[in-house]
Simulated assay, not measured.
Amino acid sequence: MYKLKTVVFEQISIVIPVYCIVFISQLIAKNTPPKDLIPGMAISFLIVSFSILTKNLISKPNLPGFAWSTLFAAVLTLPISPVKDLVVSNVGKIDFMVTVTPLLAFAGISIGDKLPQLKKLSWKIAIIAIVVMCSTYFGSALIAQMVLKFTNNI
């Protein structure tokens, strides 16, 4: 139990600086008043914290933390959820694109110590990455095209 508590607190302590960066980014980029950001950030932080705890408590299915977060957020925002309006109205004030930039930078920094492992993957991984990104882009464009034609928007 002590080890579980230590692991959970360690993982949550990594999340706290990320939330600070996101909060400051929101203030600077969007000039959102802090009183509008704090409730949404608190709800989001609670979802992430609960996801970290769940990920460490439940071994089957072995889902990563972001999957638990996505699941909990989806359940909380279901039309039948009594807290749907509270969650959507408060978390909706957090701009997604402003949030993504520091998170991607943080993720890039976190893989910095894994460069020797990345070098072992060789140049073939770059080709695979390009194929995956292009496939995702063209697949999304195809789906968008079909939906727009189906709804008579083009």
Rank of each mutant, 00 (worst) to 15 (best):
T32S: 13
A42T: 11
A29S: 13
P34D: 07
S51P: 04
I47D: 01
L46D: 00
P34E: 07
P33N: 12
S44V: 05
K55L: 04
F45R: 00
P39W: 05
I47M: 03
I52C: 03
I28C: 10
K60R: 15
I58Q: 10
I28H: 11
I43N: 01
L37E: 03
K55H: 15
L27G: 07
G40Y: 02
I43C: 02
L46S: 05
K35Y: 13
N31W: 11
K60D: 15
S44E: 04
P33E: 08
L27W: 06
V48C: 10
P33M: 05
S44K: 03
M41K: 01
S49Q: 02
L37H: 04
Q26T: 04
N31S: 14
I28S: 10
K30C: 07
I52K: 02
I43F: 10
M41Y: 01
I38D: 08
K35D: 09
S51C: 08
M41D: 00
T54H: 04
G40T: 02
M41Q: 02
S25T: 06
I28W: 14
I58C: 08
I38L: 14
I43R: 02
I43Y: 07
T54A: 14
T54N: 05
M41F: 09
K60T: 15
S51L: 06
G40L: 01
M41R: 01
I52P: 01
N56L: 11
K35T: 12
S59C: 09
K55I: 06
V48L: 12
K35W: 11
